[in-house]
């Protein structure tokens, strides 16, 4: 059985023929679209390395069947910078050393972007830690990650205020 699906991936329309219904969004991105920034850690929804934003919501792409997401709008780590200009969350991760080996970082950054959009954590470090608990970092860069998320939240709020002023 084969399935045709249409997606928007990082702003570009993308038609895919699937020869197998078992393909997850994660495998579609990595193996079919060569977007290997999204990482496969546990592949079971426990580590968060595969986090992407689908229709505006951060989810685990390893537990999402591609065929079920026909028509979805995906944002991955490859789509967050503007040319050479890093996304404020990417920049904040560098500033605050929010990584060591870097394997979990794309998932951390996509999760942080989702968290900031959701707007429930704001400037509360406890709420940031709770909101980021679905992303494990085996190097233990959590302190830097929390600082980065708080800093990026403030920077993005400032940009929004300037834009609306």
């Amino acid at each position: 059985m084969s399935f045709s699906i249409s997606l928007i991936v990082n702003g570009s329309p993308c038609d895919v023929e699937l020869d197998d219904p078992r393909v997850t969004l994660l495998d579609l991105l990595r193996e079919r679209l060569q977007l290997t920034g999204t990482k496969k850690g546990c592949d079971r929804g426990q580590c968060g390395a595969c986090t992407v934003i689908v229709d505006g919501r951060r989810i685990n792409s390893c537990l999402a069947l591609a065929v079920s997401h026909d028509g979805a709008d995906l944002l991955t780590i490859e789509g967050v910078a503007t040319g050479d200009r890093l996304h404020p969350v990417q920049a904040a991760f560098i500033t605050h050393d929010g990584l060591q080996c870097g394997f979990c970082t794309p998932g951390q950054i996509m999760s942080a972007i989702g968290l900031i959009q959701e707007g429930h954590a704001a400037d509360d470090p406890e709420r940031v830690r709770e909101g980021m608990s679905g992303n494990l970092c085996r190097c233990g860069a959590y302190a830097g990650i929390t600082e980065a998320v708080l800093d990026a939240t403030a920077a993005m709020a400032l940009t929004d205020r300037r834009r609306s002023a």
């Binding site: 929804g45 968060g48 986090t51 919501r57 951060r58 989810i59 685990n60 537990l63 999402a64 999760s111 989702g114 968290l115 959701e118 909101g131 980021m132 608990s133 679905g134 992303n135």
Partner: peptide, 9 residues
């Protein structure tokens, strides 16, 4: 329950 990503789905 679960994580933010799982609750979103």
């Amino acid at each position: 329950g679960a994580s933010a990503q799982l609750r979103n789905a």
